[in-house]
Simulated scan of single mutants.
Amino acid sequence: MWKKIALPVVLALLLGLALTGIALASESEDTPLPPEMRRGVGQIAALGESQITLRDLRQELVTLEVDEDTVFKSTSGEPASFADLETGQWLAVAAVAGEGVSRLARLVILLPEDYQPPKPWVLWLRGRVEQVDALNGSFDLQPRRGEELTLVVDADTRFQGQVDSLEGLTDGMLAEAAILRLEDGTFLALAVRTHSPLVWHAGTISGVDPAAGSIILETRRGDVITITATDETRFRSRGGWVQAVEDLEVGMLILVGADETADGQYQARLVLVGRPHRP
């Protein structure tokens, strides 16, 4: 009879097997798992020919390749095989980088049938806002990798950044959300921090007003743009010799990532600075 196993025990089991060594190359050669090995837990979303697609605890899809050197075990240490895997099953895996975006599984542990991931669990997820449903109190968040998630909000959800409520969200906004997975499988957004995609401008500084925090930028096409720096603006330069607007000089080459306000103004979020042109 399978026994319930907590997540820390699963990870400790993986670590223990790594330290004791498992025959990866052949049955007669004990080879410890290499230090670059990544370990984790996930649920099988799909099975292909010599391939496992897992949904990890962050709800992201991870592709694992298997080969003749992949070791399959049960939690009791009994040998297992790829043929024992089924969609929906939970696995603990140790893998190294493979070709492309996939990873090569070196150790696969089949977890008990009654294994349950830790609940509730909280994670931070970044992505693009899609399909805001103010009537039902939800919105979709599309991460860079993985499937789109529907997040619900309640009266305690905190909004930070450009909006202060669900109604302020618009499709295409970039957002970070602290998410709690509830017992019924839905995802509750505890906090949402939003910002729009940056608008980038590159060119030469033609004027600086430190008192107003403004930078006048002339682009290669001859356009003149005024950009305002705030206390949250970050400056980056080789050697760190530019830390604020006061350090900027006419003639410097800069690349600015800015937020465009509702009235068409630009507020700098990031300023990358090059050396001034020298005659």
Rank of each mutant, 00 (worst) to 15 (best):
K4Y: 11
K4S: 14
A6T: 10
A6G: 04
L7Q: 15
P8D: 08
L14T: 03
L15N: 12
L17V: 00
L17Y: 09
A18V: 00
L19A: 13
T20Q: 03
G21Q: 02
I22Q: 03
A23W: 01
A25I: 05
A25L: 06
S26T: 06
E29Y: 10
E29D: 10
T31Y: 00
M37V: 12
V41T: 06
Q43M: 15
D56I: 02
E60P: 01
T63K: 10
L64C: 04
E65S: 09
D69F: 02
D69M: 02
D69W: 01
V71T: 01
K73Q: 00
T75E: 10
P79E: 00
V96P: 01
G100H: 11
L104W: 00
A105W: 01
V108S: 01
L110Y: 00
E113A: 14
Y115M: 06
Y115H: 15
P118E: 13
K119W: 02
P120N: 06
V129K: 07
V129I: 14
Q131T: 10
Q131C: 03
D133A: 08
D133G: 08
L135R: 14
N136L: 11
F139N: 13
L141G: 05
P143C: 08
R144L: 13
R145T: 10
E148G: 01
T150E: 08
L151C: 06
V153G: 09
D156N: 12
D156V: 07
R158H: 05
Q160G: 05
L169A: 07
M173D: 08
M173S: 05
L180N: 13
L182D: 12
L182G: 06
T186K: 08
L188W: 08
L188V: 05
L188T: 02
A191E: 15
V192A: 07
V199I: 14
W200T: 15
W200F: 09
H201F: 09
H201W: 09
A202P: 02
A202F: 04
G203K: 07
I205K: 05
P210W: 12
P210A: 06
I216Y: 08
E218K: 15
D223P: 03
D231A: 11
D231M: 04
S237W: 10
G240A: 10
Q243M: 12
G251E: 12
L255A: 13
G257Q: 03
D259I: 11
G264T: 13
Q265E: 15
L272Y: 11
V273R: 07
G274D: 15
H277Q: 15
H277I: 13
